[in-house]
Structure formats: structure tokens, C-alpha cells
Design a protein around this nucleic acid. Structure first.
Length: 577
DNA sequence: GGATGTT
DNA sequence: AACATCCAACGCTAG
DNA sequence: CTAGCG
């Protein structure tokens, strides 16, 4: 029976060119055994998981010809449900493994993926004695280019680049592997080192269970004490004695096994998550005698879990930027959405609309660098010699967010390129009552564009309209203008009661204005996943075409609903990530 | 939101 | 110390 | 022609 090789937990990643790195995916360790007869998924304890993940098995069967030359084959990897290429949803895979009924329905709606990170057998030959580099190279040739139910875990040569990936995707952590490491089955080895991407949060110790030595941690939500979770590991002998002595001296024994303490002792906990009164992989980090129990609250916990870049000073986190949405809530949204939003901002001059005191107060545009901006904000000079701002990374995004930047607008072309990356039809009905016209226009444009070989995408504008994005190659603005004008005219001819290219507002009536003039150099459009400055905190949301119906309500896509939406359905602009 | 200038 | 101002830019229109 | 508007 296969037993997985295990990495040793360390606090810091080793560097040097004898090491190579992989992202640590948060799912189930799994061995995939593929013989001429059958395909089996083995858990780390030797359980057969195949029946729980039929989508993996059937995908393999459909792609047998691709693998035939390498059979029999044994892959070591992780069974995951993806949110991004590097971010996974552990809760989902855990649920899946427990499900008995309707497995096929779940496997269709939210298919699991096997991410292979090692190769133990190929053509019936054991590769365990070979170096990791050799195995990794062979694994690459076998899995090259595959993006389906089986993928290869990419390897990173540079420590800095994997740290950046782990950080932005908030991955579980990373594994450093010695290039010359052999595969030592069932052993915890120093040639594989895991580094966890811990979140650090502060909690109040209120209970001690003498039976199992678990300490209960709590936090304040408004005035009431709520349970954060339990923690047992990480305390050194002396620290544990200090704590238990304190319990015996100042606490009360509430039953045979449990001591209770009024809120006074605070500690930092390292963990992977803190949800529903449960900490995942909690480890004691340090006592916090320098803070008050009231400092352990929803605000500081949200902040700890978000893992904001340390380079950004956050301020006035309790301020309301949208009704019922504090600046911290907004920054947490930006932090979560960053891996989906940054690709749409990368290498494009940014036009930021800032609302430092919230959507109801004074606002202004900004596209040049403030002279006090930190040096990590990247810029590019424009024709007038001014420094246009860029948003290339997480710390920039969070810095702009902290400055009340609520709307991120970008041009159609990237920096150092004159030609647009896409055509965008901005379909803005005169009011929400006429939203159905935008839906109709979007589908008509989709048909026309697909007929010409394009692959149109669609998103809400975050206000009342829809925007059809058509990725293009090698077209100038002049050429896109010709195509857009022609398309607009076909639309108007086909339904002059609903569409118009009339520029004067008073002459438009309740028709939808197809504005191809706004697709030009220097013009901008709201970036995917940017919020709009509305009372509902609406988001410019990429959609699947089958969602674009007359019953679609663009107001439902807000910073409250988007993370859940993406966890369930993924991102329709996937190609951009 | 923060720097700088004005009362 | 309190308060004001700046933070884009381009086409269009009324006067 | 320019200030103001969107």
C-alpha cells in the first residue's frame, strides 16, 4: 500500500539553488494509481476515494490515449476544489468526501481536480530512487498543457516568486523540495519542508479543559463574548505552566474538568482560518500582555485573517464607505478579490475615483501620483511628463483602497501599446426599467461577434448596464471604431424603437444609446470586479452568458455576494486569470 | 486621505 | 488651530 | 471664445 512521503514543518523557507518550490494546496492528499485495468484514488490512510470523485475517474478514461504510453502509472498529489489556480476551498472538498447521494450532480456543478506534484511510477518502473528534479521533469512531459481534472502542480525556481503567489492567492502554504531528494515513502523527511501561510489573530483565553488540555479562545463582538475556537499546541512547557497556574489562582472550576477565567489573558494564535467557532490548525504564537481583551474583536480578527500587506498603513477602518460597509469590510473585499481583479488592472493606466468619506460625500478623480505616495506604487509617464499611476500588485490595490478609491477605471489598451486589447460595447439603458433592452443588445452583439470568430464576454457595469468585452488581436482603434459603428447600425436598423446612436440625450427617449465614440484612446471603462460608488456597494461583475436574461438583476452583485458567487461558480473571465 | 496653503 | 483646496480630461453646448 | 457640463 502507498504511504505518502511527508514534509517537515518549518517556519522559514530555505533558499539556494538546491531547492525547488511548490504551492501547498489545501485539500486531501491523494495517490492516483492508473493501471491497464483500472484507475484508483487512494487516501493517505489507504482508503479508496474513487467512488466519491467519479469526475476524475471518467476524465482519465476519456483521456486514456494521452497516457497510454506511460501506464501503469502512479501519481502523488492533492485532491482539491479550486477557486483560483492556487486558491482552494477546503470546506467544499471535505463536504464532497462525506456525500453519499447525488454525487454525480456535485461532480458536475463543482468538479474536483487532482493536482499532481510527484511521479512514483511510470511504465511500471519505480522512480522513487530518482531525484525529485528527474521525476518532476518526467511528470511535466506527461501532464504538459493539461488543464482538465488532472493538472500538474507548477514548480518554482525562485523563492520570491512563489512567496508572491502564495501571498496573493492566500494559499495554505508552500513546500520546498530538495532537487536531489528521493521519494522516501511514509517518512517525514528533511528534504521536503512545508511552510504554512499562517494568519495571526489575537484571542482571549477563557477556558481550560484539564482532560485534554485544550484552551478555549473568545473575542468580543459588540459587547458580547463569542467563541473563536480551541487551541492546544504550540505552548512551551513553561508557557503552559504559567497559564494553568493563572487559571488555578484566578479562575473558577465550573465542573469536574473545566476551569473558567474572566477576560484578561490575551494571546496570538497562528491558524489557517477562524470560522464558525472553529480554528483550523491553531498553534499558540505568543502571549499578548500589551493589549486589552477588548482589542480581541471582530475588527482585529477580520484584519488578521485578511493578511494585508505589511507595507500599507491602514487608517480609519471603522469609517463607513458605503451604507453598512466599513472601510475594513471594503479592504477585506479588495484583499479577497485581488487575484481576480489585478489581472484586469495590470499594465493599464489607472483612473481612480476616490471617496475618502464614503459614497455620499465629496469625490474626485485621480490619475497622477500623489507626491506622498509610497515608492511601491508604480507609475508611467505620459505625454505631458506627468506620472500616471498603475495598480500592479496587492499592496498598491490595498493602498488605493485605504485612500477611499472605490472605482477603478482602465483604458482599453495596455501601457506601451497603441492598440486596444478588446472592444467593449457599453450598453447603458436610460434606467433599470429598460434593462431588458441591454440584455437584448448584448445577445445580438454576441451573435454577430461569434459569427465573425470572436469570443465575446459579458459583465455588469455595476450600475444599470451591461458591457460586452470582445478580446481582439492586431486591431487599431480606427479599425475597432469601423467594426463597432457598423455593428451599432445593424442593431439600430433591426430595432429602431429600442436602439439609437443619437448623441443628444433629449432625442434618445427610452431607447438604448449605443456609444461607440467612447471606445477610443484615453477613454476608460470600469475594471472587472471594481465596486461602483452606489448605496448597495455594487460590483462590475463578469457573467456567464446563460445568466444574461431579462430577469437578471444587476443590483444583486455586491461586495456582499461576490466572494460566495465566485466560490460557487468560479470567474467567467477565467482566461484573464 | 493627506499635503499644502490660507485665515 | 481651524479651514480651504487640490487630486482627469475631452467633447459638447449655451451664452 | 470660453466657462460650464457630463
Amino acid at each position: 500500500m502507498w504511504k505518502p512521503m511527508l514534509p517537515r514543518l518549518v517556519n522559514e523557507a530555505p533558499s539556494g539553488n538546491e531547492w525547488i518550490y511548490q504551492v501547498k494546496y489545501d485539500g486531501f492528499r491523494c495517490g492516483l494509481q492508473w493501471t491497464d485495468q483500472d484507475i484508483t484514488l487512494w487516501s493517505r490512510n489507504g482508503h479508496d476515494l474513487s467512488h466519491s470523485f467519479p469526475e476524475i475517474i471518467s476524465w482519465c478514461q476519456q483521456h486514456t490515449s494521452r497516457f497510454q504510453a506511460y501506464l501503469p502509472l502512479f501519481l502523488d498529489g492533492e485532491l482539491i476544489i479550486t477557486i483560483t489556480a492556487y486558491r482552494t476551498d477546503f470546506e467544499q472538498i471535505q463536504k464532497r468526501s462525506r456525500i453519499k447521494k447525488n454525487i454525480n450532480q456535485f461532480s458536475q456543478n463543482r468538479p474536483a481536480t487532482f493536482v499532481a506534484f510527484d511521479l512514483l511510477e511510470s511504465k511500471a518502473q519505480s522512480l522513487r530512487k530518482k531525484s525529485f528534479s528527474t521525476r518532476d521533469q518526467l511528470l511535466s512531459t506527461i501532464l504538459e498543457g493539461l488543464t482538465g481534472r488532472i493538472r500538474k502542480a507548477p514548480t518554482f525556481e525562485k523563492l520570491d516568486s512563489i512567496l508572491e503567489v502564495v501571498d496573493i492567492h492566500q494559499a495554505e502554504g508552500m513546500v520546498a523540495k530538495q532537487k536531489k531528494a528521493t521519494y522516501t515513502e511514509g517518512k517525514r523527511s528533511n528534504t521536503w519542508l512545508k511552510i504554512k501561510n499562517f494568519r495571526t489573530i489575537s484571542g482571549i483565553v477563557t477556558n481550560w479543559n484539564t482532560e485534554n488540555d485544550y484552551f478555549t479562545l473568545r473575542y468580543y463582538h459588540n459587547e458580547t463574548l463569542c467563541i473563536l475556537g480551541k487551541c492546544k499546541n504550540g505552548l512551551e512547557q513553561g508557557e503552559k505552566e504559567t497559564l494553568t497556574t493563572f487559571f488555578k489562582r484566578y479562575g473558577q472550576k465550573v465542573n469536574g474538568t473545566t476551569w473558567e477565567l474572566d477576560p484578561s489573558v490575551c494571546m496570538d494564535i497562528n491558524c489557517l482560518s477562524a470560522e464558525d467557532q472553529e480554528l483550523r490548525e491553531p498553534v499558540f504564537h505568543q502571549f499578548r500582555f500589551d493589549i486589552n481583551p477588548t482589542d480581541c474583536n471582530q475588527l482585529t480578527i477580520d484584519q488578521g485573517l485578511a493578511q494585508f500587506p505589511s507595507t500599507v498603513n491602514l487608517s480609519r477602518l471603522e469609517k463607513e464607505l458605503f451604507p453598512t460597509v466599513t472601510k475594513l469590510n471594503y479592504l477585506c473585499y479588495l484583499r479577497w478579490i485581488a487575484p481576480f481583479m489585478l489581472p484586469g488592472l495590470k499594465d493599464r493606466r489607472l483612473t481612480l475615483i476616490r471617496f475618502p468619506d464614503g459614497v455620499h460625500e465629496h469625490s474626485f478623480y485621480q490619475k497622477h501620483l500623489s507626491d506622498y505616495a509610497p515608492s511601491f506604487i508604480q507609475t508611467i509617464s505620459n505625454n505631458d511628463g506627468e506620472m500616471d499611476i498603475l495598480c500592479q500588485d496587492l499592496q498598491s490595490l490595498i493602498w488605493f483602497g485605504n485612500h477611499g478609491g472605490l472605482e477603478f477605471h482602465v483604458p482599453f489598451n495596455k501601457i506601451n501599446k497603441a492598440d486596444p486589447e478588446e472592444i467593449v460595447f457599453d450598453l447603458d439603458p436610460p434606467s433599470l426599467d429598460q434593462f431588458f433592452i441591454a440584455v437584448r443588445a448584448a445577445h445580438l452583439i454576441k451573435e454577430m461577434m461569434e459569427h465573425q470568430g470572436f469570443t465575446p464576454l459579458v459583465k455588469t457595469s455595476g450600475r444599470t448596464g451591461l458591457q460586452v468585452h470582445i478580446p481582439i488581436e492586431n486591431m487599431t482603434y480606427d479599425e475597432t471604431r469601423v467594426l463597432m459603428e457598423a455593428t451599432a447600425k445593424v442593431l439600430v436598423d433591426s430595432d429602431p424603437d429600442h436602439f439609437t446612436i443619437e448623441r443628444l440625450k433629449k432625442n434618445r427617449g427610452k431607447r438604448l444609446y449605443i456609444d461607440y465614440v467612447q471606445h477610443a484612446p484615453g477613454k476608460t471603462i470600469i475594471a472587472p470586479y471594481s465596486t461602483r460608488a452606489t448605496d448597495e456597494a455594487t460590483v462590475a461583475t463578469p457573467l456567464y452568458w446563460n445568466e444574461v436574461t431579462e430577469t437578471l438583476d444587476p443590483r444583486k452583485f455586491t461586495i456582499h455576494t461576490i466572494p460566495t458567487r465566485i466560490k460557487e461558480k468560479g470567474c467567467p473571465f477565467n482566461s484573464m486569470i
